[in-house]
């Protein structure tokens, strides 16, 4: 089980959280300009790296707030935790993003 450091509540068991999938997927600024392939990329395609992955979590059974986690998908090590809207910590790019 993961031990996840919520930016507001501190370390809590994974069972209190819900994983919201890949982070930093930007809603298209000009939706009308997109073709079908662009929409498919935005809606369905995912990076799914074997390595560091930036993802969203919600402390659904705690403070109820969303935040970002950078986690390694092979070791499950949590590399960084940062709030929504914050820039990811600069220690090199996450794998595959």
């Amino acid at each position: 089980m993961l031990l996840i450091p919520c930016p507001w509540c501190g370390h809590r068991d994974e069972s209190e959280f819900t994983c919201g999938g890949e982070a930093h997927i930007q809603r298209p600024a000009d939706p009308a300009a997109l073709d079908d392939a662009d929409w498919a990329d935005y809606v369905f395609m995912r990076t799914n790296p074997k390595g560091r992955h930036r993802e969203r979590w919600c402390h659904s059974h705690g403070c109820g707030r969303w935040f970002n986690v950078e986690r390694h998908t092979l070791t499950h090590d949590i590399v960084a935790v940062y709030r929504m809207g914050e820039t990811p910590p600069d220690h090199g790019e996450a794998d595959g993003t």
């Binding site: 994974e14 819900t18 799914n48 992955h53």
Partner: peptide
């Protein structure tokens, strides 16, 4: 398990 992983193991809950 709800999170992405390549580790062939999951969580106890």
């Amino acid at each position: 398990d709800g999170f992405n992983s390549y580790a062939q193991r999951g969580s106890f809950q």
